[in-house]
Design a protein around this nucleic acid. Structure first.
Lengths: 204, 204, 204, 204
DNA sequence: TATGAATGAGTGTTCATTCAT
DNA sequence: GATGAATGAACACTCATTCAT
């Protein structure tokens, strides 16, 4: 009826919301079908099995995220602007599907081989992409010495952890929902400062 | 370790390993029983239900971790030494049960009210405990301006994320197991530098 | 009988036989499924749980029985004919599901509140329905003084007990199956006589 | 310690209460042990298995009841006095263990052969014991013609059913607990009248 | 494309029973 | 006698999956 596979996409979108946005890691095929307003058996009609659907969803999301992030890292803008843009992108993506990282961590704990499915065709590592520019900064003493791996892990950690640990952070620091949202908006600058050791100047 | 309730503790230890060390979030009562070499029904004999056992395990671990971390934050040593000790403690704990945070995140996604069980009796927040000393440092311009909440979240993120995302990091950056271990040993200094913006001097 | 929901009704009928005809009070979902020739999980597909199925079966049977019995008591025929018809109906129903009373007794022993489910919408008690006619008979000295409650309980007892206690009666009085059946056919008159104190005349 | 097997009897008494007085047909060994304040394993120490304990309890109770009832039927007092005494005895026994009949019915439905255990050594049936006296009464036209079997079944039904169906009767006829107790006290006379068709005279 | 019906494998849980002490 | 620990068998129930329509 619809030119594009309407129902198939509907199921995929609803499943993504349940899995990666609401964090219902064990969402049932029935729950997904209910969310999409379709019959449970349709999920198998389109995706063969729950697991294959999951793999497909993960691949789609991870790939889409990676493309955008890679585009930023491979652009020719100055390093600091590049990292700032990168932080913004990671935070934006993280806000859409905050539980994605959590999901991947859990999935790969049981099936370590699955990680290959998620990151295939990765000829260039992100740490490779920033290596030269980072070295340059370090040589200019514009940034403290750090390996590209540690730099990228710091970046990922500072961006993703606050999204992952939303409930824990809110509870521990007694934040309301609005306080948490405000907290997130401040993070872009906080993360940049933590990475570049120069909060004083960036404040003004 | 405890001489008396041998089997009960055995089950608890094996379950902790499965849940929080190996990250088998959905570990079956059968899997736990197998790991402990006992009958499945014994789990219910000692803990009534899988869920009650889980709650007990979480409470035990979270409490133990919290006590040690709090002791460090409440000690009277200078701020930087305190934070260095804190980082070391968090990393040490994280190495023992790397998936604990992941577990809590997933559990609280489905049952947001459960978070209260995990953090009960929390009169003093960690951010409160460092508030004054952090202010002092900022006033001395020894550290860039930052709120205690952001400071603590940065700290948690930089410590916990690399443990949580072990598989992802190893794969993305092409680290072998030994390379990953080496990477972790370097992090104490990396994290300290990221928090205190002074890598240059600390390197020499 | 119902053409459409074939399997659902099949399960219900087989379950009724097991529970109320054969007296297998603890009939397993597996036994019910076997009797119906279907998979055990289908019982949950149609009825959610064993208990909900049971409640449904009880409500159906009790309601159906009550409607027919009430129709007789509310009809305008003379009292003795009415009671005779009532006895016949109770015996007929009892023969179909002899263990129904036993089942209700056992169930309500554990869950006294369940009795409300079984007798809902009971605006008029059976004892109320015969009250006036019984009084009339007593005034005419056609029957010995007795309260409507005792009269109805006598009636229920004399009808139901021999069905309930089938095995006990057969064994105590050494009845074969055919002897027991013959015994039951005689009871309609025996009960009527016991209620109306006039065996002599009714015999001839 | 105790000259009589104190604990063994304690368990038996508590089990009888649960099974035959409270009607907990499926009472667990744990529930019985709890009621007796002893360890669950003791039940097997004394009785080998739950089923053997049950058989023992049933045999004890049934035998004790039978002996007393038989003594009355075999005494040489006039028929009507004999039956009056018998009714009184059955009601007294029924009040102590109202669910006994219910229990036997349910048990023998699953295991019809068990009934032999309960009534063994029954050389003389109760119907045989009253046969001659009943015939005499009928010949004297003091009672309507009835077979000894029907007479005894009527008697059992009228005595036992109101005890068995306590909850149902209370609910159907809207009786409070005190109203039910009053109802039971009236039954001795009601039953006698129903059996002997002569309420008018017995009332005055 | 879509669905209701049906199923097998597995999950937590209960319970009577056994055994060493 | 008495008990805590341990177990196997069974139970209701769930869930992904299949199939006929």
């Amino acid at each position: 009826m619809n030119p594009e596979p309407h129902t198939e996409n509907l199921i995929k979108e609803k499943a993504k919301v349940l899995f990666f946005q609401k964090g219902f890691l064990n969402a049932t095929t029935q729950e997904i079908a209910d969310a999409a307003g379709v019959n449970r058996a349709l999920i198998h009609y389109y995706f063969r099995s729950r697991e294959q659907m999951l793999d497909l969803l993960l691949e789609e999301i991870v790939n889409e995220k990676k493309i955008r992030k890679r585009a930023i890292l491979q652009s020719t803008i100055p390093f600091r602007e590049k990292i700032a843009a990168y932080i913004e992108e990671v935070l934006k993506q993280g806000l859409k599907y905050p539980y994605l990282e959590n999901f991947i961590i859990t999935e790969t704990a049981r099936n370590p081989e699955k990680i290959k499915l998620l990151c295939f065709k990765d000829k260039l590592r992100s740490s490779e992409l920033i290596k030269d520019q980072l070295h340059e900064e370090i040589k200019k003493k514009a940034i403290a010495p750090i390996s590209p791996e540690h730099f990228m892990v710091n970046l990922s950690a500072l961006c993703n952890y606050p999204l992952l640990a939303k409930n824990v952070i809110q509870h521990i620091h007694g934040m309301s929902d609005t306080a948490y949202r405000k907290f997130l908006t401040e993070r872009k600058e906080v993360i940049f400062n933590a990475l570049f050791n120069e909060a004083k100047t960036s404040k003004k």
